[in-house]
């Protein structure tokens, strides 16, 4: 076969390969909102993050505004420090609150933000101070049980006093 024909086919092959990679990164991976220059980071400390994972979505009013970038344990306070990577087009007030919620009954956990009323905005690197922890089912049941038996005890002591 002539060399120019081979060159043409190989050129076509490589071009289609590059097009395939571009397609995968643009259409399948959606390159756009992940790059660092379009996001800013905030921090939030939680008492308990439950089953929150890195890359979990962050939602405000149900709209995804960012993703969890990292989760660490603060060795001074022994609370979980979550790094939030938020889209630059969304800013939040200084008294915004963050809570860990669950999508559906058994779904993945995500961070729900709630915008506050403070006119000052949170800047990159600052902390969200108002946080509420994930709901841990065992603790919830535990609380329910203690309050239940506590109620019984008070009733019993009341009847004993009579």
């Amino acid at each position: 076969m002539k060399r120019s024909t081979i060159d043409l086919w190989v050129g076509l092959f490589v071009a289609i390969g590059i097009a395939a990679v571009v397609f995968l990164s643009l259409k399948a991976a959606n390159l756009t909102p992940q790059s660092a220059d379009q996001t800013y980071t905030l921090y939030a400390d939680f008492d308990n993050i439950g089953g929150l994972k890195v890359k979990a979505p962050i939602k405000e009013a149900g709209v995804v505004v960012g993703r969890v970038a990292a989760i660490q344990l603060d060795t001074k306070t022994y609370r979980a420090r979550v790094t939030l990577m938020l889209d630059k087009q969304y800013t939040f007030s200084r008294d915004a609150s963050a809570e860990i919620l669950t999508a559906g009954l058994l779904g993945e956990q995500y961070i729900g933000l709630l915008q506050g009323g403070d006119p000052d905005e949170l800047k990159a690197g600052e902390h969200i101070t108002l946080t509420s922890s994930a709901l841990v089912l065992e603790q919830l049941i535990g609380k329910f049980m203690t309050s239940f038996s506590g109620g019984n005890n008070s009733k019993a002591s009341a009847s004993a006093a009579q």
Partner: peptide, 19 residues
């Protein structure tokens, strides 16, 4: 179909690692 794919596929983690 596409938005589910784009939400779950990460460029570095999935595409680059596959390559």
């Amino acid at each position: 179909f596409w938005s589910q794919m784009q939400n779950n596929v990460d460029l570095h983690y999935d595409v680059i690692n596959g390559l």
